[in-house]
């Protein structure tokens, strides 16, 4: 995959509709097609640009197709309310990597950016969340919210992380599950009884006739 921002190659904005993407692709393909540049002294350059246009179009279409089934954590790739993102090409490449679901690469680029504002923490949180680093993602999302408390996108993302973190940490049934000791067993007598009964039955016996 080319490292150039595909939207930059096609000279369209990230928010362009599919029709606008296709129109830009057709126009640039017509312009740089080898058949249209036979007598052009810069035919090699035109061919190279033609390939870039093809790759950029394929990449955008693939990202948009994948977008409907993308990972659990989505984000808004716009640059609104953030001058840092608009001028920084590194942040642009972070967005490109995130769109392509290459979160490790996005984190590498983020770690090379010295200034850490709320957007930085938010993007880092999204990347970490999609990599499974949930604790770090929550901390960074909280940091983004504390730096920009009025940003609904950051607050919603933090709520989403906190919601997902509750799934396997609290019991909706109440009570404890026994002590966290190192002895043999699961700490829950019902589970231990079932395991013991199953093992007995494997050996041909029956520990508890009722299970």
């Amino acid at each position: 995959m080319s490292s150039k921002n595909p939207y930059y190659v096609l000279r369209i904005s990230r928010d362009a509709s599919d029709d606008e993407v296709k129109r830009a692709y057709r126009e640039l393909s017509r312009k740089y097609h080898p058949d249209a540049n036979v007598d052009n002294p810069l035919a090699d350059l035109a061919e190279e640009r033609f390939k870039e246009v093809q790759e950029a179009y394929d990449q955008i279409m693939k990202e948009r197709e994948d977008g409907s089934g993308q990972g659990a954590y989505q984000y808004d790739g716009s640059y609104q309310n953030d001058s840092h993102g608009k001028d920084d090409p590194r942040m642009q490449s972070v967005y490109t990597y995130m769109n392509a679901r290459q979160y490790r690469e996005a984190l590498n680029v983020l770690n090379s950016i010295p200034g850490r504002n709320a957007q930085w923490y938010y993007m880092s949180a999204v990347a970490n969340a999609n990599l499974g680093n949930n604790v770090m993602a929550r901390d960074q999302a909280a940091q983004a919210v504390s730096m920009e408390p009025n940003n609904p996108q950051y607050r919603q993302f933090l709520s989403q992380l906190q919601w997902n973190g509750r799934r396997y940490q609290t019991t909706p049934y109440g009570g404890n599950f026994g002590s966290h000791n190192d002895s043999c067993g699961t700490g829950n007598i019902c589970c231990d009884l079932w395991c013991a009964d199953t093992l007995c039955e494997c050996m041909g016996g029956d520990l508890c006739s009722c299970i």
Partner: peptide, 8 residues
């Protein structure tokens, strides 16, 4: 299921 996910 909740027990298996949380504890085990």
């Amino acid at each position: 299921y909740g027990y298996v996910q949380r504890e085990l």
